[in-house]
Design a protein around this nucleic acid. Structure first.
Lengths: 218, 218
DNA sequence: CGATAATTTGACCGATTGGTAAACATTACA
DNA sequence: TGTAATGTTTACCAATCGGTCAAATTATCG
């Protein structure tokens, strides 16, 4: 009797690894554009260059595909925030966090859109991860920022909204890429727009978070 | 012979106005969550409390519904940017632009998500509007900001990326509402989060755009 | 090689999709 | 009120949806 699903086997064969990779790659293409509901297995199968039943041999359902994709991408996606160092210099930590996030928006726009789609739909598949591991990580880093502010190293500010604003500004260049390109026009929409964005955002956040001089009566 | 579609008639009846309104309201509910591809006419019909063929009596196709919705919402959505005044005080103009955008994210989150969905999918239905009217409006306002910088009223900065960053930070509270709530947790995710966001963003943008003192050698 | 397990596919299923046809109900108006 | 235009619904259609099945093909290994 043939074991029903590849997932059942303990040791994954070379073929299994290759094909699963191939499928998730195609699934990322499709899910990141159309969201879960708007994507079809047939679309993914065509992009992957495989037959639909063959996809379903490796992933039992559409949900399983989506789930595997999210799981795989989630870890990588939070890497920059994890690298945020409490012992580092506040200015350079914030600067490099912005840079890293911007690089991810440039190099992994599909991953960014996958999450954006999920958020827009109310995060039906990842709400637990948001309230659990993500919140925990953000709480931790927010405490670091709060300590910096308390020590007078940066201006007093709400650390959560600071993180939100870095997330949104950087991911914007992946999620709203069409709009950014359209508004910038042919001439300024080249690869250099990420450098321009980096320059602007660093200036904004660094200067915006500088400790303000004591407002002497003047 | 009965005229095939309501749209054909010159004068719109009371019923037509009411029902079309009712349909677009329901369509906004559905499209803003699931995007165009992921939404079904049946879903919209159920939300609207009408039968599917009845919807199709007022809008010939799913595309026509989406189109009408986008057209109606687009004008309102750009209102805050249009209100941006060249003759006003830079600081207060930027401050009130942020406030207005944040209020829209709070009061019209569905409209924000509708556009976000459209952007994620590559703007297949509104690309012309982006490259035409939107770009024109942004170009115009960007010139205003550039003039402010040149006159030394605000720090030198790329006006386009400034606008992008205001868009992204404010709309984030509509589009990523689930994530914001999850991260802030039960205690801080109340209605007050918009006030907190406003305070933070105003501080960030106002201080971040203050003209920097001449870097004296020290 | 042979045999057993792993992989792949075409044919197919019931449910759902966007949309239509025509009968039926309601409204507006002379 | 009568009647023609407008509005609504039931029944239906072909295409597509997620997913199954059994047969066919290929890889693995003694």
């Amino acid at each position: 009797m043939t074991i029903p699903r590849a997932a059942k086997t303990q040791r994954r064969t070379r073929i299994q690894e290759e094909k699963e990779e191939q499928i998730l790659e195609a699934a990322l293409d499709v899910f990141s554009v159309s969201g879960f509901r708007g994507s079809t297995i047939d679309q993914i199968a065509e992009v992957a260059g495989m037959s639909k039943p063959n996809l379903l041999y490796y992933f039992r359902t559409k949900e399983a595909m989506h789930r595997a994709l999210i799981d795989r991408v989630l870890f990588t996606w939070l890497e920059p925030l994890r690298a945020f160092d409490a012992d580092g210099n506040p200015e350079s930590e914030i600067r490099s966090y912005i840079r890293r996030k911007l690089e991810m928006a440039r190099d992994f726009p599909r991953e960014s859109r996958l999450f954006a789609n999920e958020m827009l739909q109310g995060a039906p598949h990842v709400e637990d991860e948001l309230k659990g591991p993500l919140k925990q990580l953000v709480d931790e880093k927010a405490e670091v920022i709060r300590a910096w502010a308390k020590a007078g190293k940066i201006a007093k500010c709400d650390p959560y909204h600071l993180i939100f604003s870095i997330w949104s500004t950087t991911q914007h260049y992946a999620d709203f890429d069409v709009q950014v390109r359209a508004v910038l026009g042919q001439e300024h929409a080249g690869a250099g727009r990420f450098e321009d964005a980096a320059r602007f955002l660093e200036q904004l956040f660094i200067d915006g978070l500088k400790v303000k001089p004591v407002p002497s009566a003047s």
